[in-house]
Design a binder for these strands. Structure first.
Lengths: 260, 260
DNA sequence: GGATCGCTTCGGCCGCGGCCGAAGCGATCT
DNA sequence: AGATCGCTTCGGCCGCGGCCGAAGCGATCC
């Protein structure tokens, strides 16, 4: 374990892993760039990570693409990020260097994170569509109906071995968002609707004009045109949701799981 | 994150964290001992871990007790251990220095792990009492009945915000065992029945003679008297379970969740 | 009150590991 | 075939951080 920790403990390697968190494979040169080191230094780091089976290597032509070796590795990195977001700010708040677009909306492995991710989670929680526990989460019966209305089949992932709905701590917002099959399905649906678009070389998600309208109407989340003011927080999201559309069918407060 | 990784990347600190994984608070001297360093070195490490809010400090008399600062930290360490167990053995199999009693049965935060933990999980899975997914797990309806027969109230933890049943990867056995509310309840029940006993200064669990009988009868797990031969693996556990007692009521194979 | 004990702080030693420049190697392009 | 490109290997520099001995400090014991 110490060995693994030491591997994660270098800023260059940590940056590389963070850059790979969405599951894409990146070439060595690009990883050198995100790690802010020369290619030869990066090469050394990548060799270590690959030796430890944290990264998998894919050769293509004269390029060598690296990606996280397994979801287990991703979840390990995620859990460290979560602790890092919560524990350290006291001593080292100064300002994270994460770019604004990343804070707004990004992919986290296969689901949405950032303000978008927690905004969806907050709105759904406020309406009793999802309940969060300390280390688990569940979609309520009314929540299943809501998702069906949103365009996510009721039987999605029923046969899959993955967790259906689980919370994932957001390291920029420091609040949970929705992961698991449901989280992935929500992201897929948003992409399908053309509400958000994946960026080619970062994990950032761009919110389209149609997306801004749709997300406000459905979840009560408002994104201003280009750079965005602060997102309304949970209380106001809940209120707004009550006042606008979709979410206010069978509005029930809090954690009980009303029968549809 | 790199900062956190560096913190975890020192063998001495890693040993300390591992020793605290069951949630107990240990005095500085004892942690120095498990880390195999002098008290003054340990003091430095502990200061760093405490500064980073990974450990919480409790002063009592002239002793200073340290414990993990939060369950989040525990789950982070756990996820690293899980990756360490799976990824590294290829290069560094040579023999773990974990003591045999720890491999047999130990606490993992608040539930059972080691051969005992995975044995229970295997037996229950083989009988369709629990199903494991990639990042989730659930107790089936027959499973709920089985647990009730075992002495665990049907409504245990219903109001808790913790995850009810979740898999936890065992880093000595490299297979999942049962964590969450159910995992904790099973351990509590085993303690209550006098089947296992917590050790004072390690996470090892001692299996009592009554426990050996009970565990065999209920779960089909056999522990020989003192040092134990290899535990029968999943297939044989399933067969044995069919032949002996308790588990064979409404025996159904595999993953379907039969209605009670 | 003095002795002991648990723990911390200080100071200095030393080795591991990250860093880069230079050079090498195979794939690709023209 | 030669030029370029992406990446790796080699070698040497250097600084961070872990380690321990010695000393200090407060609580406890007798």
């Amino acid at each position: 374990m110490a060995e693994l920790g030491a591997l994660l403990g270098d800023p260059a390697r940590a940056n590389m892993l963070a850059a790979l968190m969405d599951g894409r494979a990146l070439p060595a040169g690009e990883l050198a760039y995100v790690a802010r080191v020369t290619p030869q230094t990066a090469s050394g780091h990548l060799a270590k990570l690959t030796d430890a089976n944290l990264l998998a290597l894919e050769k293509r032509g004269r390029h060598r693409y690296f990606r996280l070796a397994s979801p287990l590795v991703a979840s390990m990195v995620e859990s460290i990020m979560a602790v890092a977001a919560i524990q350290l700010p006291a001593r080292r708040a100064p300002v994270s260097y994460m770019d604004d677009r990343m804070r707004t909306a990004r992919t986290c492995y296969d689901h949405t994170a950032g303000r978008l991710g927690v905004g969806i989670a907050d709105a759904m929680a406020a309406c009793g569509y999802v309940v969060f526990g300390e280390d688990g989460a569940a979609i309520t019966e009314t929540g299943t109906g809501f998702l069906a209305d949103f365009g996510i089949a009721r039987d999605v992932g029923r046969r899959s071995r993955r967790s259906f709905c689980r919370p994932c701590l957001d390291w920029s917002e420091r609040r949970p968002h929705i992961a698991g099959i449901v989280g992935a399905a929500i992201l897929d649906r948003c992409l399908e609707l053309g509400w958000v678009e994946k960026s080619k070389d970062t994990r950032a998600l761009a919110i389209t004009p149609a997306g801004a309208r749709g997300l406000d109407k459905t979840f009560g989340i408002q994104f201003s045109s280009t750079t965005l003011p602060t997102l309304r927080r949970i209380a106001s999201v809940a209120n707004a949701a009550g006042a606008s559309s979709n979410l206010n069918t069978s509005r029930t407060s809090g954690r009980n799981a009303p029968v549809r």
